[in-house]
């Protein structure tokens, strides 16, 4: 696992049924592009998060294929519909095989 990777998500804790909510996510990651060289002139191998998926109660909200052109500490903002109470599941997939997960519960009342 890449070192110091820490996800953050911003999701409202409460919503009304069918409401549109804005979600923001940020994850600490170098996103090494594979384009840079080290001090000796050797190419630093690509090491990025290549996919980001958000589901709510098992149904998909957004599925992002990420390339090296995504900035360090990848940030996403998007909108989701909340039909009922449940859990948002956020999953980031690293080139090195690591998977970072975060869950956030939303209560519909």
């Amino acid at each position: 696992m890449a070192e110091g990777v820490k996800p953050r998500v911003k999701v409202p804790k409460k919503a009304s049924a069918g409401e549109t909510i804005t979600i923001k996510t940020l994850i600490s990651h170098q996103m090494e592009s594979g384009q840079r060289k080290d001090d000796d002139g050797n190419v630093i191998p690509r090491s990025i998060i290549n996919r980001f998926v958000v589901d709510f109660n098992g149904e998909n909200v957004i599925d992002v294929q990420m390339e090296p052109a995504i900035s360090t500490n990848p940030f996403f903002e998007f909108e989701a519909t909340v039909p009922e109470s449940g859990d948002f599941k956020f999953t980031w997939y690293d080139d090195d095989g690591s998977v970072y997960e975060e869950t956030q519960t939303v209560t519909v009342g």
């Binding site: 909200v61 599925d63 992002v64 995504i70 996403f76 998007f78 909108e79 039909p83």
Partner: peptide
């Protein structure tokens, strides 16, 4: 290529914001 956003059934809009190089 920078990114591809696929929107699922619970996407409230076909909108996304990110930061790119």
């Amino acid at each position: 290529p920078v990114a591809t956003f696929k929107f699922g059934p619970l996407a409230a809009s076909q909108f996304a914001s990110t930061r790119i190089r």
